[in-house]
Design a protein around this nucleic acid. Structure first.
Length: 271
DNA sequence: AGTGCGGCCTGTCCGC
DNA sequence: TGCGGACAGGCCGCAC
């Protein structure tokens, strides 16, 4: 479910409630997520203070003095701030209970998400170390994308969704960025000119930044830490709009499959 | 090394 | 109503 804007919206939402707060208890109701929640997590993190709430790609990092809790929301995960009065529901797998009586509660029906623990620099963790640059930072630019797309035969859509190239771009924002840049999602990565790489990078930055401003995209079940939806869905040009007229040329938006994922695009405007 | 699939899960929706 | 199948904001770990 969540792409970078949804994860960043979540990060901003939870940070003020838990920063500098001490974890009094961790209640794990379901340990079997994408990987099992490590047994030592509760003991290692208990009575530790949250020193920072950071994001790297779609991972959230809760830094403690002795280590870091790594969270990933997978396809269906969400985090909410609540209190002990709020009864845990079916898919509420983990509660982090704080000294201020607030609870950070992880819900994840499909259990593609993860809760991990590392004592190293989290950037050196095996899941984080191969990640590409943050899309909103200057190191992700047209020249970078151009150089990393040379001689590649994979479609440009799969390239920008590859977290080893750039993090945070999921299925919705890949479709939207390619539409804004006027690039056909099926185009081979290696065939893009430098100018078109620059255009695509600008589109990615624009779409992600605007979605963060709107609190992310809620299609069905994404919720913020306070239970509110995000409002970017009303600004989507192509995602989920198969058959609707292209807002530029009026031709119906096409839906195809790439890498077993739906792609939405305009065959006239995207070449 | 790069590419493309299978698989992990549950919930929802659609057609019969 | 019930049932089967397709589909859903991700991404690792394999084969080739």
């Amino acid at each position: 479910m969540p792409e970078l804007p949804e994860v960043e919206t979540t990060r901003r939402g939870i940070e003020p409630h838990i920063i500098n707060q001490t974890i009094k208890n961790i209640a794990v109701r379901q340990r079997s997520l994408r990987w099992p929640i490590p047994k030592q997590l509760e003991q290692k993190a208990r009575n530790q203070k949250i020193e920072s709430v950071e994001r790297r790609g779609k991972y959230l990092l809760l830094r403690l003095h002795t280590g870091t809790i790594i969270l990933h929301l997978g396809m269906s995960g969400s985090l909410r701030i609540c209190t002990a009065n709020t009864p845990a529901e079916k898919h509420d797998h983990v509660d982090f209970v704080f000294g201020n009586n607030k609870i950070l509660r992880l819900r994840d029906p499909r259990r593609f998400g993860a809760v991990l623990w590392t004592t190293k620099d989290p950037e050196k963790h095996k899941l984080l170390s191969p990640l590409g640059p943050e899309p909103l930072e200057d190191s992700f630019n047209g020249k970078y994308l151009f150089e990393h797309s040379r001689k590649r035969t994979a479609s440009i859509k799969s390239l920008i969704m590859n977290s080893h190239i750039v993090v945070g771009v999921g299925n919705i924002y890949a479709c939207e960025s390619l539409y804004i840049a006027g690039i056909n999602p099926k185009r081979k990565s290696g065939s893009l000119s430098l100018a078109r790489c620059e255009k695509l990078v600008s589109a990615i930055k624009h779409v992600l930044a605007e979605s963060i401003e709107q609190g992310g995209t809620t299609l069905r079940d994404f919720i913020r830490e306070n239970g509110e939806p995000g409002y970017f869905a009303q600004k989507l040009f192509v995602y989920g709009r198969a058959g609707e007229p292209c807002s530029n040329c009026g031709k119906p938006i096409k839906q195809i499959k790439q890498q077993q994922r739906s792609t939405f695009y305009c065959a006239r405007c995207q070449k």
